[in-house]
Simulated scan of single mutants.
Amino acid sequence: MNSVLFDVPGPRARARHRIGTIVGGAAIVAFLGLLGWKLWVEEAITPDQWSFLTVPGIVLGLAEALLFTLAAAATAIGMAVVFGAVFAFGRLSDHALVRWPCLVVVEFFRAVPLLLLILFLFIAYGWALGPFGSLVIALTLYNGAVLAEIFRAGLLAVPRGQREAAYSIGMRKYQVMLLVLAPQAIRTMLPAIISQCVVALKDTALGFIIGYSGFVHEGDLIFTSIQYNNPIAVGIVLAAVFIVINYSLSRLAVHLESRLRRQGTTVVHVDEGVE
């Protein structure tokens, strides 16, 4: 099928594209090689910089901190799902006194920078919430606002005939939402929900600002110590762990989306939900 945006490249254009790809790839490899050599010369990635990985206590501390991070992300996303469902239903209400406050809440927490929200909760209520509570509630409010739009889009994506049929047999609106629309919408929203889990997990790193004993905070304790002083090595380890977990979740979301599309199901994306 010909594209309506540009002409299909001919033999010369394809040859130029291949040459550009090869030259660009070679330039990237050369840059990474130069960067690696520079870091080696500066003794930033030499074997002694990785010696912390051979200390059982440090490895155990990192594992425990990772569990704390995963616990914060799991708690936040669980609460965000509930928050999002409630405010999605509120935004679809026929009553303006319910619909407009829900709209204001959702738009407000979508617009507030997450870092400022975390700092505000910790400064204002940290005495009661602590670092964990401040981080989790901030993540809940932000991700819940995003999920509210995803849920709303998912509910609206269900064929109109489904709700009309439910109304025709005398079901009330809340019954239509809970018993007819929500079960069908959940399947279409799963990829977007999983993608939002990735966002929540990455954002737990912001807990470092308020001293939450998470994965990033534990890494900071390692590379700021006089014994190691190896921020690059520790940063590479932290990044690798986050990449593996987030990539696995992303692939799961892609797999679910592909499977749903093969079944002919309309899939709701994060960007569709937040427009």
Rank of each mutant, 00 (worst) to 15 (best):
D7R: 15
P9R: 12
R12S: 11
R16H: 10
G24V: 06
G36L: 14
K38A: 12
S51E: 10
I58N: 04
L60G: 03
G61N: 14
E64D: 05
F68L: 03
T69M: 06
M79R: 01
F83P: 00
F87Y: 14
D94S: 15
V98E: 02
C102D: 10
F108A: 12
L115A: 02
L116C: 10
G126I: 02
W127T: 15
A128Y: 10
G130P: 08
P131Y: 00
S134H: 08
A145D: 03
L147C: 11
I150A: 06
A153C: 03
P159Y: 08
K173F: 11
K173W: 15
K173P: 00
K173D: 13
V180P: 07
L190N: 00
P191H: 08
A192F: 08
I193Y: 11
I194K: 05
Q196C: 04
D203P: 02
G207L: 02
G214V: 01
H217N: 11
L221K: 14
I226E: 11
N229I: 04
P231W: 08
A239T: 15
I243W: 15
I243D: 00
N246L: 01
S250C: 01
L260I: 12
L260V: 10
T266A: 12
T266N: 04
H269D: 03
H269Y: 04
